[in-house]
Design a protein around this nucleic acid. Structure first.
Lengths: 336, 336
DNA sequence: AGAAATGTGTAGAACGTTCTACGGCATCCC
DNA sequence: GGGATGCCGTAGAACGTTCTACACATTTCT
């Protein structure tokens, strides 16, 4: 009882056994008598012993999983986190989140830091890095990548089926009678492939083609301002679209503002749909039709795959989660 | 080169020196010649050595700071995180976030986990626990608490000056000519003291009294629905208020909806103000007058205090960050 | 010139676990 | 009754650092 922490040696002394025995009991390992079990657990309870994770790290497991977040502001991160922690709630794994920033460099620093802390596995959410860099990380620890289409042999992947999401929107609008449906996407100069907005745009194109309609994609950015600018340009055309499908809700909010300013009423003059189903989309005052990717399911799936991989699976798995369309007040039949 | 990791021993071998020498160079400790310095850093670069944080943990520092998040959905967490990481960006500290959930039990589990991983210090954001529990944590690691008024000797505290924030709103509304100003607050059954909403309500009362006005506080909850219900009740009164100050923006959004449904125009018939200045408050379509607590400053301050404490300060510090009022379109002179 | 001080490097014990060997003791089988 | 077989428990070496002692060499002081 010199200072602070209760160690395995303290427990062993108290119970009158060896540290190895205590270790066995703690880990639920083979070769422990009922009597030993009782003695040791009692000593543990009395002393309030908790294994020191950092010390464990030096020999195998740390029971720590790292989740690298790219953009902390991303509105459905909370859902994904909830999915992950929910799935892991009754296991002994602990989840720690690492704010990786949006730069490849800071993200690399974060993943390095996680590996240096010998985390048992990593979930990377929308990482901005090359496949080669991902491969290096995956060589050092089990990895599940969320939100990037493509995947690779070295790690597992969980994605929202963005092609399907885009199709849901187009089908819905076409079903309402729209034919001039424009899409606002995000302009990205990064070399990364398979980012969600690219796949959404491609899904939109496919769906339009399937309906025999001409596609119309405008690339601005996934910000309120980007949506506003894009919509202003689209609405100034002679043959203006009767519906705008923005690849992200935040941009859709900008579209709504542009409609306001142009004196167009929604959905009578213009239907608007977004993607992500962020919290405020459901506020009655906004009531934005949007595609919901179930973040909880995505997170739970990622957690499951990661644990499987940690426990030995080597074959790579790519899981695709189906989104659903949430129809609200901003979409309706076109006037006339 | 048997497997994976480059260790300090590998570097020592390569440079032809002892591991102790390498350790000195890595830590920038005293007693290293220029020649030694050069040899070792070269070997480190060649091998790509990074110190193993978990191994370090067993002897002193881990250079890891833990941030416990209570509610991941809280819209200004990202700002606080940015403030923390921004401040720490050029140090060797790494920040890891722990989703603690809203239950005292899960939060305790998370702080325990952080201590078990021997993190060098903890920042707790709006923790829901008793002062006694906080004291236990603070005994095991340096702690800074964010968002709880009151503080204690064992840890540092950073809070938004919620009394001032409430006063800013009341002063603004009174300046516009309002006299019947109601406040919507959050109903909490937890035994925790000094939670922001309580202090905001108290600040509102003080400010009203200072103006010689009668206060009018209604407790529902800080949700869109809570704001809606509260406003509906307030607006049904004979002597309905001309301004409603909601203690959180999310509730203010509900107030706006209630005004819509009651056929009242904002701000002519009803002024509305919120608190937190969440992202969408600035959207032109919402344009909500709100109190901005500079999350970045709060985060940066918390990080600074924590590092100071880790480096030896023992005297406790409580820092209060001044909020600012952002006047937008939802407040104006009463029609009367 | 000898003693003291300073500067530079190393040996080796910690830190708190896990886990491989192995030893002791019953039990079982022929 | 003696060897094989299980079961239970322990000793002690790892894991990758840090850090206190100390050894040795050089410089400074008197």
């Amino acid at each position: 009882m010199t200072s602070g922490r209760v160690t395995i040696a303290d427990v062993a002394r108290r119970a009158g056994v060896s540290t190895a025995a205590v270790s066995k009991v703690v880990r639920g390992a083979y070769g422990v008598s009922a009597e030993m079990q009782a003695k040791v657990t009692q000593a543990i309870d009395e002393l309030g012993y908790r294994p020191h994770a950092a010390a464990r790290a030096l020999r195998g497991r740390t029971y720590t999983l790292g989740v690298m977040l790219s953009d902390t502001r991303n509105p459905f991160f909370p859902d994904i986190i909830e999915g992950i922690t929910g799935r892991l709630g009754d296991t002994e794994y602990q989840v720690l989140l690492g704010p990786g920033g949006i730069e490849p460099k800071t993200q690399a620093r974060m993943t390095d830091a996680m590996i240096d802390r010998s985390m048992d596995g990593l979930i990377l959410i929308s990482p901005v890095m090359t496949d080669a860099e991902l491969a290096v990380i995956a060589a050092a620890a089990p990895v599940v990548v969320v939100g990037r289409h493509g995947g690779a042999a070295a790690y597992d992947a969980v994605v929202d089926d963005d092609v399907m999401g885009a199709r849901l929107v187009v089908d819905h609008l076409v079903g309402l009678g729209h034919t001039r449906i424009a899409h606002i996407t995000h302009l990205e100069r990064a070399r990364a492939q398979g980012l969600p907005h690219m796949v959404r745009a491609e899904g939109y194109r496919q769906a339009m083609r399937a309906h025999g309609l001409a596609d119309d994609v405008l690339a601005t950015s996934f910000t309120e301002e980007g949506g506003f600018e894009g919509a202003r340009e689209l609405l100034a055309r002679d043959d203006r679209p009767t519906a705008i499908f923005a690849g992200a809700d935040i941009a859709a909010l900008g579209v709504l503002r542009a409609a306001d300013e142009a004196g167009l009423s929604v959905p009578e003059d213009l239907s608007v749909a977004g993607y992500d189903n962020i919290g405020i989309a459901s506020l009655k005052r906004i009531s934005l039709t949007s595609v919901d990717q179930d973040g909880r399911v995505i997170g739970a799936t990622a957690a499951r795959l990661l644990v499987e991989r940690i426990e030995g699976r080597t074959r790579s798995v790519a899981s695709s989660v189906s989104p659903t369309l949430i129809v609200r007040g901003t979409t309706g039949p076109p006037r006339h």
